[in-house]
Design a binder for these strands. Sequence first.
DNA 1: CTGATGACGGCGC
DNA 2: TGCGCCGCCATCA
Length: 117
Amino acid sequence: MLTRNMKSTPTTPEQRILAAIRAVPRGQVAGYGAIARRAGLPGRARLVARILGQNEDPGLPWHRILRSDGRIAFPPESAEFAEQCRRLRADGVEPRNGRVRMPEDEGTLDAALWAPR
DNA sequence: CTGATGACGGCGC
DNA sequence: TGCGCCGCCATCA
């Protein structure tokens, strides 16, 4: 049952990346590299950033994508930075100094659930 | 083809 | 935690 039927699923890297981004639920965040990984493109963090920059879909939760250390990727003075902060707060996430708490590890769900807050 | 650039990441101090 | 350096990738001049 190899679903890889050549001419039916042209799933481009961009498509998988966008899908991975859309998969990030409200109230949660993810790093560029993490998204790339989930999209099956390890090492393409910069590609994720590029896609986000090109993207025009207003429904895309772009604000949930941060750098691996939880920092917002835009310059603190930029309008984009402020906008992202706003959107995150709307999601219930509270950025401290342009930074949010990133999920410890994606593999250990236990840790995430048990992690002290 | 070479070098610069950028919504990045990981490591070391 | 904050910073700087260097590695990676895709574009573009």
